[in-house]
Simulated assay, not measured.
Amino acid sequence: MSDTTVTPPVTPNANFKPRIFSGIQPSGNLTLGNYLGALKRFAQKQDEGIETIYCLVDMHAITVWQDPEALRRQTREAAAAFIASGVDPSKSILFNQSQVGAHAELAWLFNCTARLGWMNRMTQFKDKAGKNAEKASLGLYAYPALMAADILLYHATMVPVGEDQKQHVELTRDIANKFNHDFGVDFFPEPEPLIEGAATRVMSLRDGSKKMSKSDPSDASRINLTDDADTIAKKFRKARTDAEPLPETVDGLSERPEARNLVNIYAALADMTSAQVVAEFAGKGFGDFKPALADLAVDKLAPISTEMKRLMDDVTEIDRILGKGAEQADAIARPIVEKTYDIMGMVRSR
């Protein structure tokens, strides 16, 4: 027998407690895309034995000007959507970002860690600033460092994201890696993106090549979580489709973006695979499929809109939940940011 000891390779997160963090901007009118791509999965994750922390990132929202009253209402409405979608404040930490000051503190420290070249490669700033980049806020340019702070402030090891958000998790990993390397520590984990499910990217009901968006001028392009049962059914029945019946296999949807989108939505709502949906409806036209999808969507989504309305009728409970969540979040975040100061050489004498 060999006397050589073989040391297993060390993974970047081996020394960190498994923990999930994710956040959503409270910019109003959360949609079916937010539910299937985020909220539904958030609720599922809290029952998998992993600590879950969910945040309404109101500090990200102000990278563009926000009406103060609208921001307050939208933050509470987003909290109501989390709760109505099954996120249980007794199982998960739910809070709004601005109530935990350590987010802004760590973001500044990461501003001094991240490199300009990294920021210049971030596609979302280019998309949001467009041709008026010179008039955009500094916050809009630097917000990926705040996003990294949101995640690493809790030593999160996993981040549920859509495909279009993977770049931010990659930047977060770069910042964690550089900080650890610069100071010779193993202090921040390198979080992994969690991309799961049949409809992680839900497309417009009017154009299957575009993501479902709350900013689309056409309300018919999306299902809002505040839509009532009749509105949900009407929008699905009027969703754009083609004239062909559903194919025998998923491969037959490859050049049919609207059909593929509706099949993916059905699959995600029913906890099925897209292949199972296609097998069930193969050969049937959209005259059969869309009413079935509408009925399924009403069954799943109407209770959410009803509960959101109930919660918003008296926001006292929402504010209490967010306040308690902020206290829980701060209890995790404060020691981590204090240790970060210490690692960087800041005198901490009070």
Rank of each mutant, 00 (worst) to 15 (best):
E105M: 09
A79K: 00
A84H: 05
F110W: 00
A81V: 05
Q74N: 14
G117T: 15
R121M: 03
P68A: 09
A80G: 01
M122S: 02
Q124L: 04
E77P: 00
L94Q: 01
W118N: 09
P68H: 07
C112P: 00
I83M: 02
A104H: 07
L106P: 02
R115K: 15
Q124E: 08
F95N: 10
I83G: 00
I93Q: 06
K91R: 12
L116G: 10
C112V: 01
R73N: 11
A114F: 01
A102W: 10
A70T: 11
A81I: 06
R76Q: 08
R73Y: 14
N111Y: 11
F95P: 14
G86I: 08
M122P: 01
F110L: 12
I93K: 07
S90Q: 14
A84E: 12
A104V: 11
Q74D: 13
G101K: 13
W118Y: 08
S92R: 12
A78P: 01
S90P: 00
A79L: 02
C112F: 08
T75L: 00
A80E: 04
K91Q: 03
L109A: 03
Q124G: 04
L116T: 14
D67R: 02
S90F: 08
R73P: 04
R73C: 01
A84P: 03
L109W: 06
C112Y: 04
R121L: 06
Q97K: 13
W118A: 07
Q124A: 04
A102T: 09
R72W: 05
F82G: 00
L106I: 07
A78C: 11
V87T: 04
T123L: 02
M119S: 02
A70W: 04
V87L: 14
T113W: 00
R121H: 12
P68V: 07
M122V: 13
R115Y: 09
D88F: 09
R73H: 15
